[in-house]
Design a binder for these strands. Structure first.
Lengths: 341, 341
DNA sequence: AGAAAAAATGTAATCGGTTTCATTTACGTT
DNA sequence: AACGTAAATGAAACCGATTACATTTTTTCT
């Protein structure tokens, strides 16, 4: 069933059918009704390819993110796919999804596939793909020459046509560390998990907070760990056994924090009395932990909503900020009760 | 840059360029090289619309699933998006993603959008969209007239062009209940969370296992609950306070089970001594619980891999089973140690 | 009523590829 | 050298929509 078939059946030209389809006002009500009837009868819908060919837009956005099954994937960003998709759909945009592992070639292929599809924009979720590898950014730079690229929680500066929306993770970690100190902690551990823009910001925020309180920043208090339950257990256990004294802990992901809580429970380390713990992301997990986990909410939903809104505006030709930063909130629960002041 | 531009620059016809692009063997090496050089120089890639128009396939599969942010979404199916995407990408297929809430109209629009795009197949993750609503299946029936529809963990029988790949959740729940009884539990609670094909199967499996062991099936032992931490707490607390005696619990999702474990811990109910608990999905969460959660692994990854493999075969014209069922495994941990026999 | 203006409709080009079929070129035989 | 065949190449139709422009119909105004 093509527009030609419809036009014949309705005894009009293809142009008229096209006008009806696109809500062009220059069509008699009578004609419109006649055409609509034929369209309904045959439940015809226009071929999106052909439409895209003519209009040179398919109302499609490419989404690139880490494979959720990848052990290095940031668990909190997984929800972002859903949020971004929902917002795009609201605006009648389709989403071409690519979940790739931490592999440069897969990434390049995915971006190329998006470009071949003439996506209207590219959204990259997480800084996984950006950091510490100039070569890996090459395909992004090339893509940006023809298609706007939006980074959610990633950063790539001074590149035309690349836009960033980030949570201020420096500030989030700073305030979390501040809250720990304010609650009486003097020896604060930092457990972080990857090597991305966000993680780096969090580490810097932690350091700054300690420094601002006149506390020493000791490298042996900063520990890297994946979100694998067993690895967390081992790393935390060896920290305890090393004899290091600590009474506070900031984890850059809730999963890390919950792993620590589990380990602390098993070893009879009282939380929050002997050890205060703060997680990051305020995921659902925080509520399932014992005791319930205080966590920095980086508000990924707002981030996604904002990104899509700006993206759509930009496609409509409006000016757009290159970097948009949003603030996080600390949600206090039992693992670190809210300080009084 | 179009194929015409390339053909002019290379001094050949568009047909030859097209042949080179598509690996047609009837091209001289010399010509191929000449054309490839021009293509590389201008880094030209063909427009996927135009290609799709001619070939009437875009090598694209539409994926429909529940919005991960929807509170009713089945958390264990979220990973499926990633697995399915990965497998499709391996086969050089693109994925058009629609994450929708439990809303009929959104679902219909999404399916229509896929059809407009002339997707080669549709994958629906979870039975969320299928059950208990003949009207809601209408759009699927219509889609199936032109496009194969694949259901992962959903069931729609006797519809041409609709294929199902399911985990045998009846069997999984049956064996989990059996294991509980074998470990000495006589009064087994069932905590389930939604009203889908999988959930129904699990409930039936639980009932059958009790019956086969000559134990009564009591409706007050079957309790429905969302995966909201607070709701789980309330429901489980009121079960305890109602004076109901129980020594075993099967939850149809790990989140439910972990919520129960948390509540049991707080109330000093010893797991596994006084209460044995089994979850479902064997998600990452199981390892973060105290004690670590025994869980039925429905092996969603295999399900996704199998679905995509069958789908590709089917597109290549091979015969395909209409219903494919896969078995689950119980992964024993501390909340229900493996029975001896 | 008739001319001018406005509205409705139709024709045909266009988007960027693939593909059929016709034509040219290269190669092997006698 | 002449011929037949196979391989390489090109010209043009086609896929299914949109749209500029031409044409027809309707409305408005004198």
């Amino acid at each position: 069933m093509t527009i030609h078939d419809i036009s014949k059946l309705a005894n009009v030209s293809v142009a008229t059918v096209s006008r009806v389809l696109n809500g062009n006002p220059n069509v008699t009500d009578k004609t419109r009704e006649k055409v609509m009837a034929v369209i309904r009868e045959n439940d015809y819908t226009p071929n999106a390819f052909a439409r895209g060919l003519g209009l040179d837009t398919m109302r499609t956005v490419g989404i690139l993110c880490v494979d959720p099954a990848d052990p290095d994937a940031c668990p909190s960003l997984m929800l972002a796919i859903g949020y971004v998709q929902r917002e795009l759909r609201k605006q009648n945009f389709d989403s071409l999804l690519y979940c790739v592992g931490y592999d440069m070639q897969e990434k390049e292929c995915s971006i190329q596939a998006m470009l071949d599809r003439r996506v209207d924009a590219i959204i990259i979720i997480g800084s996984f793909f950006i950091e510490n590898n100039a070569k890996s950014n090459l395909c992004i730079l090339r893509a940006a020459q023809t298609t706007p690229v939006w980074l959610i929680n990633g950063r790539l500066e001074n590149v035309p046509n690349v836009y960033c929306t980030c949570c201020d993770d420096f500030d989030g970690a700073y305030r979390a560390t501040h809250a720990l100190i304010q609650s009486g902690s003097r020896d604060v551990l930092l457990l972080h998990y990857a090597d991305t823009f966000s993680e780096t910001q969090k580490i810097l925020g932690y350091r700054k907070a300690l420094a601002d309180h006149g506390l020493p920043v000791r490298e042996e208090y900063i520990c890297e760990c994946t979100t694998d339950a067993q690895e967390i257990n081992e790393k935390f256990s060896s920290l305890i056994e090393s004899g290091l004294r600590f009474d506070g802990l900031l984890a850059t992901e809730d999963e890390l924090a919950v792993g620590v809580l589990k380990c602390a429970n098993e070893r009879g380390l009282a939380v929050p009395e002997a050890l205060r713990v703060v997680g990051y992301s305020n995921s659902k997990l925080a509520l399932f932990a014992t005791p319930e986990l205080t966590s920095v909410d980086h508000n990924i939903e707002s981030l996604c909503v904002t990104t899509v809104a700006l993206l759509i505006n930009q496609l409509r030709g409006m000016k757009t900020p290159v970097i948009t930063t949003m603030r996080s909130d600390i949600v206090f629960r039992k693992s670190l009760p809210q300080p009084l002041s």
